[in-house]
Nucleic acid binder design. Structure first.
Lengths: 211, 211
DNA sequence: GTCTATAAACCGATAGAC
DNA sequence: GTCTATCGGTTTATAGAC
């Protein structure tokens, strides 16, 4: 744990000199993310990742200090960019309705763009939350929640959203309904992510019951 | 695999004679379910379960042929009773609206009553679906989907539900939104499952947007 | 940057005594 | 029904040659 950054520092140094970007490191992380997402973090062995990358398991430790470090880096990159994305959408929206619409569409876009990271977060976040090493995940989740809650509360206050809705519970229902999509959505299938967002917003905005 | 039922048969035999019910077996399964749900199936070791039960890991194999068998039995009991429950609700409902209302409320009730089994199904179903031994889970899931889809289609056909909704996608959104609740709902907390169902149905029926 | 070789720990499962 | 004792296999991770 104390030597956690050894391999990483070496890789970054070399990369900074070459100027090509740490392509190898990023490539290995992409492989790891896909396998972590599809078969689960604990079910994926470092051997599995190495074989998929065409090297031996020991060689992975030249790039990463531990298996945990791979997961940490994947989730940190994901949570960081997600939070920035959500904040900019909420900041630039003209109305609570437009903000919520943008947040939902951005979420489906994210599922389309980085399904592995989303699935990983979706499947392992609960377990990870209990270990101190991954407390940053819980922390980032709370920041994201704050953004959505502000939008919902503003909409209820302005009369745009129904006042019967309890903000926190409503947020959780929406969040889970949207992110769970990653379990069955196929990025290469015929159902486009924008269409999916349309369908979800149709249901969410107007409800199920015909008037 | 061939001797899968050895331990079980022994336990049931002894139990049938004593007439006390296979209380020990059920108790061990309850312990296993809770640990599988809270820290994940693969992250839970047979040693963990044994310690929690106050025995040694080897002793578990007197009751169960394998760790897999414990998971199978938990999920089989759960999926079976869930399917029966859903079918009876759909059959006895007077209208599509009443049927959907009943299905949703019954789901929240199930989360309240057996949170561990729900969480287990929610967290491991995707992974389990790929192994032939647990194909019964996927099969039961499809039967459940059929019940919900019939209700949604009937409601759209009768004009009770909005015709813009695509049944399959709508079902998945509802399913995920409802079942995901298990991740944050506390059965012993102050928020009752019936209240939660009310809040979800308020959002689902009428939508977010104020009229 | 990768390979060879291996350490150290852990896992599921078994055989047989009590 | 539980314990003692242990086997065989797998896992993460390390040290050092190339």
């Amino acid at each position: 744990m104390a030597t956690t950054k050894g391999g990483a520092a070496t890789a970054r140094k070399k990369n900074a000199g070459a100027g090509t970007g740490s392509a190898r490191r990023a490539q290995l992380l992409a492989i790891a993310a896909e396998m972590f997402a599809s078969r689960g973090y604990t079910q994926t062995t470092v051997r599995d990742i190495a074989v998929e990358a065409g090297i031996l398991s020991g060689s992975l430790y030249h790039h990463f200090a531990s298996k945990d470090e791979m997961l940490t880096e994947i989730l940190q990159d994901f949570m960081g960019s997600l939070l920035r994305q959500f904040r900019s959408i909420a900041d630039e929206a003209d109305s609570p309705r437009a903000a919520l619409d943008g947040l939902v569409r951005s979420s489906f876009e994210t599922i389309h763009r980085t399904p592995h990271a989303v699935a990983l977060y979706q499947n392992e976040a609960n377990f990870l939350g209990s270990t101190p090493e991954f407390s940053f995940v819980t922390k980032a989740s709370r920041e994201v929640e704050k953004v959505w809650l502000d939008v919902l509360r503003a909409g209820i206050a302005s009369g745009d959203f129904r006042s019967e809705l309890e903000p926190t519970t409503t947020y959780r229902f929406i969040r889970d309904g949207v992110w769970s999509t990653v379990r069955w959505y196929d990025p290469r299938g015929r159902l486009q992510h924008a269409t999916l967002a349309d369908q979800y917003l149709t249901m969410l905005d107007g409800g199920l019951i015909a008037s």
